[in-house]
């Protein structure tokens, strides 16, 4: 009776397997050779177990250049109402009627960007949400490699001996500190692009000899 569901999962989980089987670059890789995918999710709430993805935006970085040709922004069909979260991301239920199927978008993400280091601002939540979403759609979730621009900023400020106030790490404040154009506005693609700019600046500040393992340390 549930055979179709099983078949679907088997076929779809191939995407996950492909992602799992694609190796990440060695941790000794110089950062300018690594590929990054900077992404941002807008959610119906802050609980990855219960809440859903409303929109996703991403932009890849290759050779330390943001590739706008592959910048993507998708609205996602949510099984529940966006409710009060609309206040933050500005997306309302009626706009999501013609939105995309979550599995379809995750398939694109996992098949195109296997082997990429993922990047987000305050990445913990995004990572958990992605994992739960994969679990829900494919029956299994891969392990991601995530870099957190917020953690990097926090460590950087601590090393400078600065007292870090609670809102100093918010994306707009980080952008301002780095002298970057501030367009962060809870739009998944704009925020992903802004985080990408922040990462480029942070990578430059880290010096030219950084490897991925240095980066993982900075992002802890």
């Amino acid at each position: 009776m549930f055979g179709w569901l099983l078949r679907k999962n088997t076929a779809l989980s191939e995407v996950v397997n492909h992602f799992i089987n694609t190796p990440f670059p060695a941790s000794s890789t110089p950062i300018e050779q690594a590929n990054f995918l900077v992404l941002d999710l807008e959610l119906t709430g802050l609980n990855p177990r219960k809440d859903h993805i409303v929109s996703i935006g991403w932009v890849p970085i290759r050779g330390q250049e943001i590739v706008l040709a592959e910048a993507k922004h998708y609205l996602i069909n949510s099984p529940v109402s966006v409710g009060q979260s609309a206040v933050y991301h500005g997306l309302h239920d009626h706009q999501l009627k013609n939105a995309h199927d979550l599995a379809q978008i995750l398939t694109e993400l996992l098949s195109h960007y296997a082997g990429y280091i993922f990047v987000a601002h305050h990445s913990g939540l995004d990572e958990q949400c992605l994992r739960f979403a994969c679990q829900r759609c494919f029956g299994k979730a891969p392990r991601f490699r995530f870099i957190d621009t917020m953690q990097m900023e926090w460590q950087r400020l601590l090393r400078q001996g600065k007292v870090v106030k609670h809102d100093a790490l918010k994306l707009p404040n980080c952008l301002k500190r780095h002298g970057l154009p501030d367009m962060a506005n809870h739009h998944a693609l704009e925020d992903a692009y802004s985080s990408a700019l922040l990462l480029l600046s942070q990578l430059k500040l880290g010096g030219n000899t950084m490897t991925l393992s240095d980066l993982y340390l900075l992002s802890r």
Partner: peptide, 14 residues
């Protein structure tokens, strides 16, 4: 036009 743009960040002295 913007889809054919790559963005790069330069640091002073680069």
């Amino acid at each position: 036009l913007s889809a054919h743009i790559n963005v790069y960040y330069y640091q002073a002295q680069d």
